[in-house]
Design a protein around this nucleic acid. Structure first.
Length: 592
RNA sequence: GCCCUUGUAGUUCAAUGGAUAGAACGAAGCUCUUCUAAGGCUUUGAUGUAGGUUCGAUUCCUACCAAGGGCACCA
């Protein structure tokens, strides 16, 4: 539709002999949906832009253009008018009814081909064994999963990857603490203890070990020693705890992924990636050559990124003990990704605290392997902070990602306890809705900014929330079932008649129609910008339109000729809502 | 000190350089003998400061102020 209108406008410009604009070389011309539905369905500023070039009155030019446009109006256009220099197009009932029809008939409604034939690898979540699954991992997971689905919906083949630190100081800290509490540790390392308890024990050990590392010189020495032993596997006792703890924490993570709805294709580990990175760095470090990428400095091997871009800074790639840092591991990781899958685009999603490091790593990569570097994309998200000061890591009452999920799900369970569900259904619904509440609160806003998480607010599921969207879907679904039982089938027979723009109940219908056909554009924009929040905001808009319609008119009514079309509209809404929520990684309960 | 990001109703967030800056929460009022009230309908209120570019700036540029992050052997 947009292309059709653009062509019509171009033709008119040619006719009016406005060559400066007719050639299309003016970039400022836009054709878009106006914010206000009263301003029509499409709107263009072409008259204002051209008038400026020609030095004439924009309003007069707009009127001339409208006059020409009206000479051969196509059937999808109802009316064209001009206001304040804008030219507004009003589409006809035919167009809207056909677009609702398309939602029902086209199984691929909403898809686009932005990434057709491309393979895209997305790395996200990245929790570390021996550490708790914290809130940041939850954010990365929600964002990564949603971006994966959106890009997949846009034609790409998606490869989901997770990257985990199975070596390094954090492991040594946890093991140090577990060795100290040997009795407790051995009592946890038995079959009868649940996975959750085991994982909690390890997570708490890490927190205490970390504390000791920072405040106790003796402990620091011991931990450094354990760290070395973890690398070279020279201590039988440590190996035993390490192997056990790694399996336990990874299994606990799998339980969380299951709840969140993620399936990874690859798990990359730092222990595998580190030697590859070391090799790359050593191969590109030669003091005798003036163009050596890496240089020795104070016993470490560093990269002077500021040489290439003064906004960047120097970073250590291999420390003075010969151990690789995060930067070097990242180089190894990237190489392995391209060896295994050779993606057209490789996305890494992390918190924004890693943005500056990544720029340096990416500059080093660019010098050594520009082709791969050009296919890398780093997407950063903000940090989740709690609105109340209740959380304190020192007191040990850290809120983990997992505890947030559990808290949220429990609240839902409480809310639906009197509903007519089996225990199994209750469990399923409370899980789906609880997870939706969290995911939505992460995805509804631009991913770059910090999120202020208010536990109390996320528990109240009103208004702008995941459960609100699910609830709207469940209501629609319940209508569709009732329609089926009363034998009112979706139909378009009376959809083109008897609608009046002056009738309120009809206005509610128009609003849903006007939002429905925009869904594919919204998805495409989300894919182009890797920004799920456009979809989240759109879904709230359409849910609100549907709920208004629902609250103010009766849909199932045997005496109403329009009832079958209203059912068709309800079905179209439920399809779009279902697809939209899928793209956010949110499940849709049929009842709730 | 340098670099990056962010400043929008009381609060949490929207707004591809466009029209009267949208929602939600909160607050006040109304609404279930009718398809799920986790709903619907009213009312209330905002672009950090100072310049610049533009027919038009929340959006782009400059300075300042404020918040967050990063600046060598943690990730």
């Amino acid at each position: 539709m947009k292309n059709t209108l653009e062509n019509l406008i171009l033709e008119v410009l040619k006719k009016l002999d406005i060559p400066a604009c007719a050639g299309g070389e003016v970039k400022d011309i836009s054709l878009e949906h106006p914010a206000d539905l009263k301003m029509g369905d499409y709107s263009t500023n072409v008259a204002m832009v051209c008038a400026k070039k020609l030095g004439i009155n924009p309003k007069e030019l707009a009127e001339k253009i409208v006059e020409e446009l009206n000479k051969n109006k196509i059937k999808e256009i109802n009316n064209i008018e001009t206001k304040n220099g804008f030219i507004n197009f009003y589409l006809s009932r035919n167009f809207f009814v056909d677009s609702v029809k398309e939602v029902l008939e086209n199984k691929n409604f909403g898809k686009n081909n932005l990434f057709n034939g491309k393979k895209v690898m997305v790395e996200y979540t990245q929790p570390n064994p021996f550490k708790p699954f914290h809130i940041g991992h939850l954010m990365s997971n929600a964002i990564g999963e949603s971006i994966s689905r959106i890009v997949e919906f846009s034609g790409a083949k998606i490869v989901r990857a997770n990257y985990q630190g199975d070596v390094g100081p954090h492991i040594a800290k946890a093991i140090y603490q577990m060795l100290k509490n040997e009795n407790n540790t051995s009592s946890v390392m038995v079959e009868s203890v649940s996975l959750v308890e085991k994982a909690n024990y390890i997570g708490n050990s890490y927190a205490k070990g970390n504390d000791a590392y920072e405040n106790d010189e003796e402990a620091k020495k011991e931990i450094d020693e354990i760290n070395r032993k973890v690398y070279d596997r020279s201590d039988k006792n440590i190996n035993e705890i390490y192997d056990w703890g790694k399996v336990v924490t990874l299994e606990a993570f799998e339980e969380i992924y299951k709840k969140l709805g993620t399936n990874f294709n690859y798990y990359f580990f730092e222990s595998i990636v580190a030697p590859i990175g070391l090799k790359i760095v050593y191969e590109n470090c030669d003091q005798d050559k003036p163009d050596s990428v890496f240089e020795k400095s104070d016993g470490a091997i560093v990269f002077h990124a500021e040489k290439y871009n003064q906004k960047l800074h120097t970073r250590v790639f291999i420390n003075s003990k010969g151990l690789p840092t995060y930067e070097t591991k990242e180089l190894g990781l990237t190489q392995i990704k391209f060896e295994k899958e050779n993606p057209d685009l490789s996305i890494v999603i992390t918190a924004n605290e890693q943005e500056e490091y990544m720029k340096v790593v990416s500059k080093a990569l660019e010098i050594m392997n520009p082709e791969i570097a050009s296919k890398m994309k780093h997407i950063v998200h903000g940090m989740m902070r709690l609105s109340s000061g209740k959380m304190s890591s020192r007191k040990g009452n850290v809120i983990t990602g997992e505890s947030l999920i559990i808290e949220s799900c429990d609240k839902i369970l409480e809310k639906i306890k009197n509903r007519d569900f089996t225990d199994e259904e209750k469990k399923q619904v409370s899980n789906d809705v609880g997870v939706a509440a969290l995911k939505y609160s992460i995805l509804k806003q631009n991913i770059g900014g910090n999120i202020i998480y208010d536990a109390d607010k996320s528990i109240s599921f009103e208004g702008d929330s995941g459960p609100y969207l699910q609830y709207s879907y469940a209501r629609a679904n319940s209508i569709l079932e009732k329609a089926k039982s009363e034998n009112i089938l979706p139909s378009f027979v009376f959809s083109r008649l008897d609608f009046k723009s002056s009738k309120r109940s009809d206005l509610y219908i128009f609003e849903i129609e006007k939002l429905l056909y925009r869904f594919p554009e919204i998805v495409e924009r989300s894919a182009k910008e890797f920004a799920p929040h456009y979809i989240a905001n759109y879904l709230v808009d359409i849910a609100r339109a549907f709920n208004t319609f629902y609250g103010n008119s009766k849909i199932i009514d045997k005496n109403d000729l329009m009832s079958s079309y209203k059912v068709a509209l309800t079905l179209a809404f439920s399809n779009v809502m279902k697809n939209g929520l899928y793209l956010l990684g949110i499940k849709v309960p049929e009842r709730m």
